[in-house]
């Protein structure tokens, strides 16, 4: 899932500025599960902002701040985004607590409004333990995990080496950050455990990094548009 971290309050304050009314929209997907952008966080951010506006009444030109609070099931799906039709009429801006995907979908839906990100999506990752997440995939478009013992060197090696390790692998750790295990060491160990070290002798060909932006068509999932 996508892992995100809340933006600093400084950023959010700047987004709100002297506006009288804004909306905060949460997402019931990844950011609820890795809890930074669910209904709870929407309510908390709204309360903090109201308090801030109250405190800054003078600098904000005695503008009271009204906030619309909403959380939709997933901000990356048109059906759910469309359910917001007609909402936020007198809002001057929207703060989305979804990942960048959601923020953009929201911005497309409300082109006349400024839409700001309330969180920074940092990576696609796993929960290691509650509150600790680690990147596990970069969406490179050509998965090689089958050849690397079920461990992704693209996301987990600081240099995304396809034929590692580099000379900076030290006692199982990465030279870039000693807290990071060297994924190539892990790959080696797993292959050894499987008795398949020979597979590592094969040189991995250069990947095609050129496909950006990603666009995915799955023909079998497409639904014909109804004539209207």
């Amino acid at each position: 899932m996508i892992v995100a971290r809340p933006k600093s309050f400084e950023d959010i304050k700047r987004y709100v500025g002297n506006r009288k009314k804004v909306a905060i929209v949460g997402c019931g997907g990844c950011v609820t599960v890795r809890p930074v952008g669910g209904q709870k966080q929407v309510q908390e951010l709204a309360a903090l902002l109201r308090l801030w506006a109250k405190k800054e009444a003078l600098t904000r030109g005695s503008q009271p701040l009204t906030i619309e609070e909403e959380t939709i099931l997933r901000q990356c799906e048109p059906e759910f985004i469309n359910s917001l039709e007609g909402r936020f009429k007198d809002c001057e801006a929207i703060i989305s607590l979804a990942c960048g995907v959601g923020v953009q979908c929201l911005a497309d839906k409300f082109p006349e409004l400024e839409v700001f990100p309330g969180v920074d999506a940092v990576f696609m990752g796993a929960t290691i333990e509650p509150g600790l997440y680690w990147e596990r995939c970069v969406g490179c478009g050509n998965c090689i995990i089958g050849e690397t013992g079920g461990l992704c060197p693209v996301s987990r090696c600081a240099k995304s080496l396809l034929n590692g390790p580099c000379g900076g692998s030290l006692g199982g750790h990465c030279e870039v950050s000693p807290e990071t295990p060297c994924v190539w060491q892990l790959i080696y160990e797993r292959m050894e455990q499987r008795g398949n070290l020979g597979a590592l002798d094969r040189i991995m060909p250069i990947k095609d990094w050129s496909v950006r932006p990603g666009r995915l068509v799955l023909e079998h999932l497409r639904v014909e548009k109804k004539e209207s």
Binding site: T32, V33, R34, P35, G38, Q39, P130
Partner: peptide
């Protein structure tokens, strides 16, 4: 209807 199966409750 609201639960996202996020596991938070399970964990806390």
């Amino acid at each position: 209807e609201l639960c996202a199966a996020c596991l938070t409750c399970v964990r806390v």
